[in-house]
């Protein structure tokens, strides 16, 4: 049984810089992995390279054991990989319903239909007829996640889950994600700036710095100090008080 997502020595450039350097990772079925790291560490670029909107310089991306490294982004969606991009990037002039439908009509078939998504994210039901640009940040994040779900992904990547959201909105999003995990067998890879949230929600944590993965381990076993050190690249074992 192949891993839902496996990455082998992946590198990607951003202009002249190596934004992602030799990243290898393996996700297990139905697990939730948090990807943390400072700004500029390469997390977004990694996710975009996995999704196919950024070209990989070297390395491989395997989805369900199938090599998708040279496949276009829309093909990867149809094979079960969905990304909720940084900034959400909803279609502002289209209604919430239409936003969801676009993904539903062009992604994979599966249990996530429009009705199912609106059930899972009930806050969206009264907003279904509104244009996406009229929504608040938290509502947009919900639509973005719902839109990704409409493609029935095996692997769901979410870039910057809580960025720009109020604490209440963040809570709502994580509640939905928890409910999602109970729902089915989707594997999650989240980029999260809020370390506490990441540790509380995820099974495993990966820390990136300057394009490479510098730390990985079980969320329950890693200490906050260890992560902070990896995050900032502090060599000494003395953590700031």
């Amino acid at each position: 049984m192949s891993a839902p997502l496996e990455v082998g020595d992946l590198s990607a450039r951003h202009g002249g810089l190596h934004a992602v350097r030799g990243v290898s990772l393996r996700l297990h079925a139905a697990e939730a992995v948090a990807l943390v790291g400072a700004n500029g560490a390469g997390k977004s670029t990694l996710l975009r390279t996995l999704a196919g909107t950024h070209p990989a310089a070297t390395g491989r991306v395997l989805l369900q054991g199938v090599d998708v490294t040279s496949r276009a982004a829309h093909e990867r969606v149809r094979m079960g990989l969905a990304l909720v991009p940084e900034g959400r990037r909803l279609f502002g002039d289209m209604t919430v319903r239409e936003n969801l439908l676009v993904a539903g009509e062009n992604g994979r078939r599966g249990p996530w239909t429009l009705a199912a998504v609106l059930d899972a994210l009930p806050a969206l039901r009264p907003l279904a007829g509104l244009p996406a640009q009229a929504l608040s940040g938290g509502q947009r994040q919900a639509v973005a996640i719902g839109r990704a779900l409409m493609a029935n992904p095996e692997v769901l990547l979410i870039d910057e889950v809580s960025l720009g959201l109020s604490p209440l909105a963040v809570q709502t999003v994580y509640d939905s994600l928890s409910a999602l995990r109970q729902h089915g067998a989707t594997t999650l890879l989240l980029v999260e700036q809020d370390l506490d949230r990441a540790l509380a929600f995820a099974d495993r944590v990966l820390c990136m710095r300057e394009g490479a993965i510098v730390l990985e381990g079980d969320a329950k076993e890693l200490s906050r100090d260890a992560i902070t050190q990896a995050y900032f690249g502090l060599e000494s074992s003395e953590a700031a008080a």
């Binding site: 999704a51 196919g52 909107t53 276009a72 982004a73 829309h74 969606v77 149809r78 969905a82 990304l83 991009p85 990037r89 909803l90 279609f91 502002g92 002039d93 289209m94 239409e98 439908l101 676009v102 993904a103 009509e105 062009n106 992604g107 994979r108 839109r147 990704a148 409409m150 493609a151």
Partner: peptide, 24 residues
């Protein structure tokens, strides 16, 4: 129509449309 929605989505944000499975 499905094509119409795909066209509007691509016109608004082609990359985001790709992420929804639309072949831009």
């Amino acid at each position: 129509t499905r094509l119409g929605r795909a066209i509007r989505a691509t016109a608004t944000d082609a990359e985001a449309a790709q992420l929804c499975g639309v072949d831009a």
